[in-house]
Structure formats: C-alpha cells, structure tokens
Amino acid sequence: MDIGIDDVKSYVNSFGTMAPVAYIIMFALVPLTLFPDSILAIAGGLAFGLFKGYIYTAIGALIGGSISFYISRRLGRRVVKKLTKDKLDNIELMINEKGFIIVFLLRLIPLFPFDVISYGSGLTSIKYKDFLLATFLGTIPGILVFTNIGAKSLDIGSNSFYISIGALILLILISIVLKNKFILKNVNKAQED
C-alpha cells in the first residue's frame, strides 16, 4: 500500500483541532517505523503552512530523535542493528570522535537517514544536550525546505512554488558537497584508524 503526501495531510486534518498534536506524535514516532521524514515534513507544510508546519515538524523531529537516541542508550547495539537494518556502518566511530560537529553535519544532509543518525548517536559517548542542539541546528534548513514545498504545493506554477523547488535542489547539491567533503573523508579516516 502506497501512502502519499495527500493521504498523510488528510489523516492529520481528520483530527480537527488536535491535528497539530497528532502530527507531532506521528513525526515523533517515525523513528520506530523508518517512514521517510521528508514526506511527513512536506505533508506538514501542506496541512499547516510554512510557519506552523516548521514549528510542529521541528518539535516532532526533536522528540523522535530523542526517542531513537534513548532506545540506543537503553537497549544497545543488537536492538538498534535490527531497527536500522545494519545501516550504522561508520557513523558511530565518527560521532565518538567529533560528536557535535558530525551530528550537525549529518543533519544538514537530508539524503542521510535521520533515524540512523539518531540511533547511531545513542550508541556513542556524545552527550544528549550536544546531540539535541546539533539536531536542532542541523535540521533547520531541511525542515524549512520540505515544509515550504508542502506549503507552496497548492500554488503549483507560481513563483513561490518554483523558488521552493529551487531551494530543494540547492539543499540537495549542498548536501552532496557536504557529504563528499566532510562525511566521506571522516568515514575513510575512521576506517584507517
């Protein structure tokens, strides 16, 4: 069964005045399902507009990241490996070495799975407050871009819609550069050590 952005929007709006709370809970529980965060963020922009969509998505992302982080801290490597389907690779080594900056850089890369970063961070020595701050700061561009696409998707053909698509393309290009310049370099370094 395929679930699309409109399906998520309709489901969220079915909660009426409790829609923001339902959306935040849905976003917070995404790490347990590994559902693509970007689809939910776009639906948040579609359902609530850019400003409220950003706020609700940011809150949900911080809660969801925290849940993943603490699942890793409490239940350990075996459970996390099953949840992430062995996608952790060298993330754990990089975060142990450079904590805040690696989580921040990984969060700037929307092509890098949000949940894997959170689960991997919980297995490291990074302090929770550093993880949370890096997550908050690093997700600002991605959340803004994805909620903006949702908010502008009702205006297909308008200048603001094309600007939101341009921002997405720019974010992806910047992500590729960051991934190649910083992350892959750190992965290679971690493998050599």
Rank of each mutant, 00 (worst) to 15 (best):
Y56N: 03
Y56S: 06
T57K: 00
T57W: 00
T57P: 02
T57M: 08
T57N: 04
T57S: 14
A58Q: 13
I59H: 11
I59D: 10
I59E: 11
I59G: 10
I59Y: 05
G60I: 04
G60E: 05
A61T: 05
A61N: 04
A61K: 02
L62Q: 12
I63P: 02
I63G: 03
I63V: 07
I63T: 02
G64M: 04
G64V: 04
G64N: 07
G65H: 01
G65N: 01
G65A: 06
G65M: 00
G65T: 00
S66C: 11
S66F: 08
S66T: 15
S66M: 11
I67K: 08
I67N: 02
I67S: 05
I67R: 03
S68L: 03
S68Q: 00
S68R: 01
S68T: 00
S68H: 02
S68V: 01
F69G: 01
F69V: 00
Y70P: 03
Y70K: 05
Y70L: 06
I71A: 09
I71K: 04
I71C: 09
I71N: 04
S72W: 01
S72E: 00
R73E: 12
R73V: 07
R73F: 02
R74G: 13
R74D: 12
G76C: 13
G76F: 09
G76E: 13
G76H: 12
R77N: 15
R77D: 15
R78W: 03
R78C: 04
R78P: 10
R78A: 15
V79S: 08
V79I: 14
V80F: 05
V80P: 10
V80H: 09
V80C: 08
K81A: 11
K81T: 11
K81G: 01
K82W: 13
K82T: 12
K82V: 12
K82L: 14
K82G: 11
L83E: 06
L83F: 11
L83Q: 08
L83Y: 09
L83N: 06
L83V: 06
T84Q: 05
T84H: 05
T84L: 10
T84Y: 05
K85L: 13
D86S: 10
D86N: 13
D86Q: 04
D86Y: 12
D86K: 10
K87L: 08
K87W: 02
K87H: 12
L88I: 08
D89P: 01
D89A: 09
D89N: 06
D89G: 08
D89C: 02
D89R: 07
